[in-house]
Every structure is written in structure tokens, then in C-alpha cells.
């Protein structure tokens, strides 16, 4: 008896139309600027906030000022990292996680984060609040630029994060903080 795999593949082969060439992706970038201002505008429209900093050392004070109630803050950027070896479920009580982002995209506010920056995959989702540190030199205009820079995957997991977690499932009223981080702050170096 033919396996389902072979059955599906042979039906697909028989029924698929003649192949056409892939289109060129040139000329899809439009005129989106790759600037910090453009990025900030979109991020804020998504409910995120942005601080310009000149040194990562400024971060703890800024966090203390804007998020005074934080008990457990962990930084994947520096400091004590024993949590990496813990059961990921133990990150449930993390109030604030600070991670680096590789690239930021001006057209949609997204930041590309991989397992390199978030060594426990669930960290940027399970934390109550999230802070991402980006370099202003690494702001790109569109998603086409982003995939060009990122290239092929080097890690097992990567994610574009654009703003805090949200839902509008109840009568289309926007609520921030569905299952992931309730707020997102981006620090631009």
C-alpha cells in the first residue's frame, strides 16, 4: 500500500501546473527612510517606547525610574546569567528582561532577536515587561533589507518583535499585554 506521503506527493506532482519563474524582489523597497525618527514613530504607534542612550550603563537607572516596582530583573546583556541553565518555567516571575536586538525595521517597528540574544527562547515572551537594546546604526528601512542582512538562519529560533503583546479580540478594543510582555521599551545606542 502506498504511504500517505507518497500518495500526496504523487497527486501533487500530477496536478501541479507548469512552473513559472520566481519574480524579482527588486524595486519593492519604496521610499521608506531608515532613520531613528521613522523607527520611533512606528514603535510608538504600536504602544512601545524608545530612549536614546549613549552607554548601556544608563539602562538600570532609566528602568528604575520608569518601572519602579520591578522585583526580578534579568539582563541577557550582562551580569549574572545562571538563569540560562534553569528550567525555563522558572522565568515566570521575571518582571523585566533586558536583551539585545540585532536589527530594527523602520517600516513596522520590528526588532530581530535570535537565540543568541535570548538564550532561553521563552524569555522575551514570559517576562512581564521587555527591554531591547538596539544600535541606531542597525536600523533598516524595510523587511526586504532585514532579510538581506539576516541571511540564512544560524540559530534554531528567531523572532521579529514589534511592540508589546496585544489583543483586540474583545469588540476590537485594543488591550496591551495579552500573553507576552505587557510593555516594550527600546534603548537605542
Amino acid at each position: 500500500m502506498m504511504s500517505s506521503r507518497d500518495k500526496i506527493l504523487s497527486a501533487v506532482k500530477m496536478n501541479q501546473p507548469e512552473q513559472v519563474a520566481l519574480p524579482s524582489l527588486d524595486g519593492l523597497r519604496g521610499a521608506m527612510p531608515a532613520t531613528l525618527d521613522a523607527y520611533r514613530k512606528v514603535l510608538e504607534s504600536l504602544g512601545g517606547s524608545l530612549f536614546e542612550i549613549s552607554d548601556e550603563k544608563e539602562i538600570p537607572a532609566l528602568l528604575a525610574q520608569h518601572y519602579p516596582e520591578m522585583k526580578r530583573v534579568i539582563a541577557a546583556t550582562s551580569g549574572e546569567r545562571s538563569w540560562i541553565h534553569e528550567d525555563p518555567h522558572m522565568l515566570e516571575d521575571v518582571d523585566m528582561a533586558v536583551i539585545r536586538g540585532q536589527w530594527a525595521v523602520a517600516e513596522n517597528g520590528a526588532v530581530w532577536v535570535t537565540e543568541e540574544e535570548a538564550p532561553v527562547r521563552v524569555l522575551p515572551f514570559i517576562c512581564q515587561h521587555l527591554a531591547i537594546v538596539i544600535s541606531r546604526e542597525r536600523i533598516l528601512a524595510t523587511m526586504h533589507d532585514a532579510y538581506e542582512k539576516i541571511g540564512l538562519p544560524l540559530t534554531g529560533f528567531g523572532v521579529f518583535i514589534a511592540g508589546p503583546s496585544k489583543t483586540a479580540d474583545i469588540e476590537q478594543s485594543l488591550v496591551l499585554g495579552a500573553h507576552g510582555a505587557k510593555s516594550l521599551v527600546v534603548f537605542a545606542l
Binding site: G109, A110, M143, G156, F157, G158, V159, A162, S165
Partner: peptide, 12 residues
Amino acid sequence: QPITTYSSHFRT
């Protein structure tokens, strides 16, 4: 929206 909040790429 310009993009969903999370676009997660699961590989391994």
C-alpha cells in the same frame, strides 16, 4: 497593523 507583534521563526 504594519506587522504582527511576533513573527516567530521555528527551525530546530
